[in-house]
Design a protein around this nucleic acid. Structure first.
Lengths: 336, 336
DNA sequence: GACTTACGTCGAAGCGCTTCGACGGGGGAA
DNA sequence: TTCCCCCGTCGAAGCGCTTCGACGTAAGTC
């Protein structure tokens, strides 16, 4: 293994100079830096992560906390994860994957052992048991999602309330007067995951404001459940012409179900969704949707964390405004 | 921060004794161990990961290498990942998540910096560019999947060839004489991912052996593609009564498509799949399937790695035998 | 022209842990 | 009884890096 003293000898400088050349924490003459860098390349030097962590009390590792709960949409989680890793690498950090079998102890463990410098926390619930711990830890963290009480925490997410509103307003603009929200699986609401509830709030508020008739329907992530909801909607709200879907897994089956029940999309029924663009684009009927910007959220989360690690101040709440893309699933109401 | 010297003082022993009590690398009297453990608990001692890594040249971190290529089924990948993490934790290791934006350099980097002790490598291709690197690295690795030349590597996977055979043999036993394989998206074959090809080999071999008429059809992971394949099959093989599906994403749409084309499952058409049990169980028509044992593969992979880290010998190849579960999608051929 | 200031570099002191060699004491073998 | 060996413990030497204080030297300042 080639170490910093080898590089120093090769470049004819002291180890500390090599260190400073690498970190930039003290001025080093251009010429010396060149020489050091050449030696590093030539010898193939790579600083030992453990030694560096010990000496600097920085591991340059972030923990990504992913509780894999029921009812979540796995591909979306994975997209977050990938963008977190990618962004972390851009900032010279690596990412440790923490699932939650260990529960909060896992967080405490990696913090206490100084294995990680900071946390990115996913799938935050309104009343999340991890919050007190994260507040007490001396390591910074960023939550993807909003708990009920975000005091003292840094949170980022799509503005789901605004997203719900945007969907309704889009439908209202097209003349629809009776709308329904087909939401996430019931367990997601029971668990009080904030984002699901926020969509409902936005949806309801906008519908009320626009004097639309509206209803809300949680839905299991199975095609059978989607069919049932479709049937139920037609039965209970025969005048329904606008649907907002906030449930990736059943978007397609739901559209199918409506069509099988004799409704053409968008001629008879306009559908909007809150989901990843990739999903909305690739359906048989491309769906007008508010994008779930996983990549952007992951990236911004890491960037917030980096600022916190640099002891810079960051906003406590970051709500990304919804971005709606019109596709083939919405049309003006068919007034017969 | 409480450190080992604090524990030592509190317990009235030397730091090295604390270390040995913790690692078990030298005999420590029961009484001393008790005392040390009590002190550790009382003080809340947690060894510093970096210091430990530096002194022992073991980081107790594994790298999980996840190239997120097109055409893979993300939930399956996630299941692997979770079981890798869980098993690693059981062996007192953590898991660093490496996507492949960095390419092979990322592997080299975390190896050279001693950030990780070993690698779990997913989505191995027949001619994988990572193989030479992994062979040359002094750190052990386990591949999930088989490359063309596995010489000197440790690989584990479901025996996909046997799985393909099992599906065909099951259909043959039920009297089916004309069968088709609906496979993974074309890009998966082009990339020469081993498991997809092995299924084809097993399928074809078993069909030939049983003198069944057979055909193979790669299929994009979209419902539209599934419908097309279904129509094509009925057109080109009107006598078809058995289908093997090796493509999680389109399993359900494919079944739907067949039924919409007037074929009842299993009365007119028997369907078997190679997919996670969870998926097969929860379809409208539960599908007879060979399980994709993600959890077991992940677990076994980590255990192999642990043995290698202990310098024990391990088998180069581990092929998990297919396990088939009969469900509602297969029946004896309807001989009119 | 004397005096500060900043630059560029060095040496040494750790960071917190593991591990190696050493050592006293007790028990079994001879 | 003597010798040897093993058990249980200690002290000290690193592991490879960062960082702090110090020190010349060059460049402003008045």
């Amino acid at each position: 293994m080639v170490k910093i003293t080898d590089v120093a000898r090769h470049a004819g400088v002291s180890p500390s100079t090599v260190s400073y050349a690498l970190s930039g924490k003290r001025p080093i003459s251009e010429e010396t830096r060149q020489r050091v860098e050449a030696s590093i390349r030539e010898l193939g030097y790579r600083p030992h992560a453990g030694a560096r962590a010990l000496a600097s009390s920085r591991s340059n590792v972030l923990a990504l906390v992913v509780p894999l709960r029921a009812g979540i949409h796995v591909p979306v989680v994975m997209q977050f994860a990938v963008s977190v890793v990618t962004t972390a690498r851009r900032h010279d950090h690596d990412v440790l994957l923490l699932t939650q079998e260990e529960g909060e102890d896992g967080l405490r463990r990696v913090a206490d052992t100084a294995l990680v410098d900071a946390f990115v926390v996913m799938d935050v619930q309104l009343d999340d048991p991890r919050l007190p711990l994260l507040r007490s830890l001396e390591r910074p963290s960023v939550m993807i999602g909003f708990p009920a009480d975000a005091e003292g925490l840094t949170c980022i997410d799509l503005d789901f309330k605004a997203a719900g509103e945007a969907c309704v307003e889009h439908l209202a603009r097209l003349g629809h007067r009776v709308v329904a929200l087909v939401g996430s699986p019931p367990e997601v609401y029971v668990r009080q995951t904030a984002f699901a509830q926020r969509v409902v709030q936005g949806f309801t508020a906008a519908a009320d404001r626009g004097r639309l008739a509206s209803s809300v329907h949680p839905c299991e992530a199975t095609p059978a459940a989607a069919r049932e909801v479709a049937e139920q909607l037609l039965r209970e709200q025969p005048a329904l012409t606008g649907v907002v879907v906030h449930n990736e897994a059943i978007l397609e089956p739901l559209v199918d179900a409506f069509e099988q029940l004799g409704l053409r999309v968008p001629a008879d029924l306009s559908i909007t969704a809150i989901c990843p663009d990739e999903l909305a684009e690739n359906l048989r009927v491309p769906i007008t949707s508010v994008a779930l910007p996983s990549a952007e959220v992951g990236e911004r989360a890491v960037e917030l964390l980096m600022r916190k690690l640099d002891s810079k101040t960051v906003p406590e709440a970051t709500l990304l405004p919804p971005r709606m893309t019109e596709r083939a699933s919405t049309a003006p109401r068919n007034t017969p």
